[in-house]
């Protein structure tokens, strides 16, 4: 049932939706890193209030399905009078969900830093904030890089969920073609290849980053 026509339609749909998938993935990745950094900072240096808030955030995000979070965020916010474009709602929902896992990944990275370094930083007179921002967090990220790459791949593979709030990304574009052509392989093989290509490109970036960060690793 392989048809050149279906393949052409798929490639053209990929051309227009690969940007949506990239935007969702990079956007959610950035939200995840920011949310994870803030949350791990609160957990390890924010007193009991910070600890509680961070734990609550991680529990809520890890304890509910991403699908539910997506629906709550995109249909709950308008009820509060906040209107956001669907793609932004999807980026926020996927990013905040992933941020909970990033919190735990970064926590591992922070705990791996030798305590002597922090003592040394105190000795040279750095403030608590400066120690956190210049000594602890960068090394935590460097330590956690392999886990963060894995988390990024999960973000990439979560993006098709955005189709339930009217964001047509690569997978749903394929579903639309499949529904009229009744063929699957010539639609979803190119789409699978596009996901692999995105992930591979990101892995290459991570390898490069890993080399840059190597001297920082504690």
């Amino acid at each position: 049932m392989f048809s050149l026509e279906t393949l052409q339609q798929t490639l053209s749909a990929l051309g227009s939706t690969v940007w949506i998938t990239l935007m969702l993935t990079l956007g959610a990745g950035i939200v995840s890193l920011i949310a994870g950094s803030i949350s791990v900072s609160a957990q390890l240096g924010g007193g009991w209030v910070g600890l509680f808030a961070s734990r609550a955030y991680v529990s809520v995000m890890r304890g509910t399905p991403l699908l539910v979070q997506l629906l709550v965020l995109s249909y709950g916010l308008p009820l509060l009078g906040i209107r956001v474009p669907p793609i932004l709602a999807a980026i926020l929902a996927i990013g905040l969900n992933s941020g909970a896992y990033t919190t735990e990944i970064l926590r591992g990275g922070v705990l791996a830093i030798a305590p002597g370094q922090i003592e040394a930083a105190k000795m040279v007179g750095l403030s608590r904030f400066a120690i956190w921002r210049r000594v602890v967090l960068p090394q935590a990220m460097a330590n956690s890089l392999p886990m963060l790459v894995a988390e990024f791949s999960i973000i990439l593979k979560s993006t098709p969920l955005a189709s339930i709030i009217s964001v047509t990304e690569m997978t749903y574009a394929g579903v639309l073609i499949q529904a009229r052509s009744f063929s699957s392989l010539d639609v979803f093989l190119p789409i699978a290849a596009a996901y692999v290509a995105i992930f591979y490109a990101f892995t290459m970036l991570a390898v490069w980053l890993d080399r840059q960060l190597a001297p920082m690793r504690g």
Partner: peptide, 16 residues
């Protein structure tokens, strides 16, 4: 910022 967004998120949940 985080707490604000969490409050918004939870109230959205309740409201919805």
């Amino acid at each position: 910022h985080l707490k604000k967004s969490k409050v918004a998120f939870l109230s959205a949940l309740v409201v919805s």
